[in-house]
Amino acid sequence: MLTQAQARPLIQERFGIAATGEGPLLVVEISPDRWQELGRFARETLGCVYFSFLSAVDWKEQGLEVIARVENLDANFAVFMKAKLGAGETRCASLCPVWRGADWMERECYDMFGIRFDGHPDLRRILLPHDWEGYPLLKSYAVDTPHPPYR
């Protein structure tokens, strides 16, 4: 069985990036154009079949960062994937072809941050009403944005 000690050189070999993070947590910061490739590699080669979560961080003028955590439950290690999209960029590759579980997480991420996931089968809002304007978890979103007639 593949252990986390064996997984680190595999990532180094394939992507040329050293995985940071201690112990069973492998943090991989990747460029957004290799996002889906890393996902496929983590699932098929590293055996991370469990998709834990996907979210995003708003770094203001530095742009958005998409983060996802996938786990190998047998070997007990996790790959933490990060990708900085760059300033003003809202497009990212979808992980839906790799994990079915990424579907709703990406919809939520689109709902809250406005990130367009290319290749997502059904990208629309999941929590907020469909006529909502703006993306509330962005730092530029004012929480007192008027919403007639209720606010």
Binding site: R116, L123, R124, R125, H130, D131
Partner: peptide, 9 residues
Amino acid sequence: MEIKAPTPQ
């Protein structure tokens, strides 16, 4: 890709 809100039923 264009994002469209679903038409209300």
